[in-house]
Amino acid sequence: MCQMEKELQAELVSPETVGPGTSEDVPECAQAGSATDTMRLQIASCSRNEQFARVVVAVFASRLDPTVTEIDDLKTAVSEAVTNAVIHGYGGEEGTIYIEASICGRELTVTVRDEGVGIPDIPKAMEPMFTTDRTGERSGMGFAFMEAFMDQVEVRSEVGHGTAVTMKKRMGG
């Protein structure tokens, strides 16, 4: 059974809070006059956390002053990635999903990572309508949705070690 509260961790890291020289793992942002803000979230791999994950990323992105449509798009894409991690990455078993979001200029980058089974053939997995699900209830459109609702989607995966999906979207005009 999923224990949401127990396994939930979130932190907000910005250059101001960590101070100069200590931000070794905060993503760099070359944008002039723009500090990188980073949010990290760890959730237990269970379906009830999908909504929480997409809402947290949406709240973090709100500092870009996005349109309602941009926020909806982001929530949909994050939901797809987290659902994939729950269903396919961990196959419904226990696990932790790591979400990191950062802002550089007007661009949001969000990475959803699992330490699950991994994807043997990424191009195949990303084909619209392709699914390994046998219940017949999954549309196979998860990656297609991420690509439709975000500007850029990148998938890294290693069989037996896990999958990381990184998505970028320019928001707020």
């Binding site: 909806d72 797809e80 659902t83 017949g136 549309s139 459109m141």
Partner: peptide, 13 residues
């Protein structure tokens, strides 16, 4: 207020 591709799979079926 929210639907993702899970909803699409269900509707299509």
């Amino acid at each position: 207020v929210f639907m993702d591709s899970t909803g699409i799979g269900i509707l299509l079926n």
